[in-house]
Amino acid sequence: MQHLTKEHFEPISVDLRQAEEIKRPSLSFWADVWRRLKMNKVAMASLIFIVALIVCAVVIPMVSSNDYFTTDLAGKNKKPSAEHWFGTDDLGRDMFVRIWYGARISLEVGLAAAFIDLIIGVIWGGIAGFYGGKVDEIMMRIADILFAIPYLLVVILLMVVLSPGVGTIIIALTITGWIGMARIVRGQILQLKSQEFVLAARSLGADSGRLIFKHLIPNALGPIIVTLSLTVPTAIFAESFLSFIGLGVAAPVASWGTMSSEGLPAMKYYPWRLMFPAVFISVTILAFNLFGDGLRDAVDPRLRK
């Protein structure tokens, strides 16, 4: 039997600072989200698709031999072919290039509207839900009033005041677009704020701002992302409606929304005029949704392993 001597032992130093050392690599919140997002194949595929779409929307109209405005009345309503991949529209314009031009507007409008709705909605709903009482009452009633005034009237008035263009469209979309988001956030905050972790954070001395934006909002991210995924398609289609009123980009530029509403009556006769814009919208929205789901899972602290 071996005798244990003192030499076999080595005293460790008692260093309090070391006790606090973090052995795992230090990751910021978003770096951690990114690490977990990368593991989700569906979400990554969606992200790649979205990036590719944006690149195509920028590049294809620049390099294509066709343009979006030259009409060819003799070659109207042609089926998809080698020359016109997506066929031609009722003025003989190449649908392929028009789709990619449309992508620029629809993506721009959809994403910008979603982003602005998100910011306003989260702040408004967050504050109303957190403070409750009179603040809540007044803020939510303001939202109700805005929601109830006929939107079409407001938009026609906007048209008179502002000049048409993408910027105006985004303003028109966000006037009432954030209300849904604000309602959902408020509802979530109301539910969450009486839970124990909020009490814990509060007793640790967290102030209201920190409580709302560090503790409550991250826990409400699921519904927020879902609402956001509704905002994008709504914005894309609302844009075509606003273009109809005269707020939108001037013809002959056409967004996806405009193209699909114009293609609708042609559904029976020239189906490609509806199908291409409609399929692009659907697939894009699907990609945004799947990416949103992945992102939700990635930010959910409970699913962290």
């Binding site: 009409t71 009722d90 003025l91 109809f244 009123i245 005269g246 013809a251 002959p252 114009e262 009556p265």
Partner: peptide, 15 residues
């Protein structure tokens, strides 16, 4: 004024 028909004619004439 907004309408499919007017728009088409305007686009064609513009071109």
């Amino acid at each position: 004024n907004t309408s499919e028909a007017h728009k088409k004619i305007a686009e064609a004439i513009q071109d």
